[in-house]
């Protein structure tokens, strides 16, 4: 059974009395352990698809099976629970809590899964060590470089043992050298730790790290192919 299975997903928003259709029937399967890049020009619907895949939004119609569970009709709180257990997010703007140490930022998903404080710390330390930040655990985000902040975000995404990591333009705010480091880290997570990674980007260079590239144009899948390295 596939980890992610979309069937004929539609999403439309009301606009000036009409329904603006952003996604026009997306059908897609992603298996456990894949490293997928979703590409597309702006306005293609890739962000909307990403939001639905990440359980931040629900489709207007169609079905979405995530890890064997139908999620298209769940309530906001049920989706929050799914996000907490199954999904780790890495955003373009890092989205760390300010005035909060790296360690505490990484602990955050476990705060909402009600993990005891001691276990939380242990696992957050392990995750930060895994992304190479063992020396920076008690730094505030504004004391860290962009690349380091993104590493904290990645540590936060993996700490709850979530099987899927969504990365939305994770290198958009980083220079080339740091981008390479971050992408290598994703590759490592995928290959050594078996995490499924879904990457949204518009940069060909970044998409090349993925093993499968899905191109979205005008709300539909334009191409879906294995990446020939």
């Amino acid at each position: 059974m596939a980890l992610i299975e979309l069937k004929d997903i539609h999403k439309s928003y009301p606009l000036d009395g009409f329904d603006l259709e952003i996604l026009k029937g997306i059908t897609l399967k992603i298996e456990k352990g894949e490293f997928v890049a979703i590409m597309g020009p702006s306005g293609s619907g890739k962000s909307t698809l990403m939001n639905i895949l990440g359980c931040l939004d629900t489709p207007s119609s169609g079905s979405y099976m995530l890890d064997g569970q139908a999620v298209q009709n769940l309530s906001a709180d049920e989706l929050a629970e799914i996000r907490n257990q199954k999904i780790g997010f890495v955003f373009q703007g890092f989205n760390l809590l300010s005035r909060t140490t790296a360690l505490e930022n990484v602990e955050l998903p476990m705060v909402y899964s009600n993990t005891p404080s001691k276990l939380r710390q242990e696992r957050a330390q392990k995750a930060l060590t895994a992304v190479g930040l063992s020396e920076r655990m008690h730094h505030m985000p504004n004391q860290l470089s962009g690349g380091q902040q993104q590493r904290v975000a990645i540590a936060r995404a993996i700490v709850n043992e979530a099987p899927i990591i969504f990365a939305d333009e994770p290198t958009g705010n980083l220079d080339t050298k740091m981008s390479v480091e971050i992408m290598q880290l994703f590759t490592e997570l995928n290959e050594k730790m078996g995490r499924t990674i879904i990457l949204v980007t518009h940069e060909e260079d970044i998409a090349r790290y993925a093993k499968r590239i899905i191109k979205i144009v005008d709300g539909e899948i334009n191409s879906d192919q294995r990446n020939k390295k």
Partner: peptide, 16 residues
């Protein structure tokens, strides 16, 4: 608002 968004994305429920 952004902090609330982060917390929600990471799994905070409305009650949290």
């Amino acid at each position: 608002t952004r902090e609330i968004g982060i917390r929600m994305a990471i799994g905070a429920k409305s009650w949290d």
